[in-house]
Write a protein that binds this DNA or RNA. Structure first.
Lengths: 130, 130
DNA sequence: GCCGCATATAAGTCTTGACTTATACGCGAG
DNA sequence: CTCGCGTATAAGTCAAGACTTATATGCGGC
């Protein structure tokens, strides 16, 4: 998942956000925004744009001397899928965990410490989160 | 979106994948996997686990002398939401841009300014850069 | 209490990559 | 053709952070 290496940089994330809300933006426009928000130079932005381009996050269209950038959906969808898969596995595990707990909570008291060689087979309590 | 800074590292991504598919794993188990796949040492993995912990990606449970790690869904969901929002904006803004670029390669003729539509007027900025 | 195992932290090194300035490239105007 | 503007690339510097070795902490067994 190379995509997350690209998304790891806050400047690049912000550039993508701007492209998302604006639809398309010229390189100059993006430079202006990044300069205002991060205080970085034109070449710095251009290098970020190259990374985004090579990772397929954006497309470029030439409009006269200007380069107009637009967001591409596919890499975003791919990253989203990776996250969703993780969560899928996670909730699946949580479900079976809760099922087992609901079934055997009474019958199963603490039975650990007789088998130090094995990995933990199940959780003692379901981790509640938001 | 601090979450993406965490997900930016391939070792951490792999640790999360393992946790997702295994349900829970002891620190030692994760060390073994990371050592095998990346050839890194125990402290290296421990430091990655700290990052994951502090960002809320995992929970830790003490089982005797062992630390048992498990995935948390919330940060994943949050990152997923950020991506989905971007894609939402993007598809909402859907112009002929994407399709034109995808198949307009053979006809390498760009008719500029046939599109008076002002989708991206913010390209110009009044100030000159230093 | 003492020892050993599982894990975490400390301290230091080294690589990655984000930034800088300087320069090259391409296009439209005159 | 030449100039100027917009953008990309080159080359070099610097800092973040991922890794190392060495050491501290905490728990269970004896």
């Amino acid at each position: 998942m190379e995509a997350f290496d690209v998304l790891g940089d806050p400047v690049r994330r912000r550039l993508l956000e701007h492209l998302a809300s604006a639809g398309e933006l010229s390189a100059g426009g993006l430079v202006a925004l990044a300069r205002e928000e991060f205080g970085i130079s034109q070449p710095a932005v251009s290098q970020h744009l190259r990374v985004l381009r090579e990772a397929g996050f954006v497309t470029v269209r030439a409009d006269g001397p200007r380069r107009v950038y637009a967001l591409r959906g596919e890499p975003l969808a791919e990253a989203e899928r990776w996250l969703a898969d993780l969560r899928g596995f996670w909730s699946q595990r949580l479900d079976s965990l809760e099922t087992e707990l609901a079934r055997g909570r009474r019958a199963r008291r603490h039975t650990r410490s007789t088998d130090p060689d094995h990995a933990a087979p199940a959780a003692d309590e379901p981790r509640r989160m938001a």
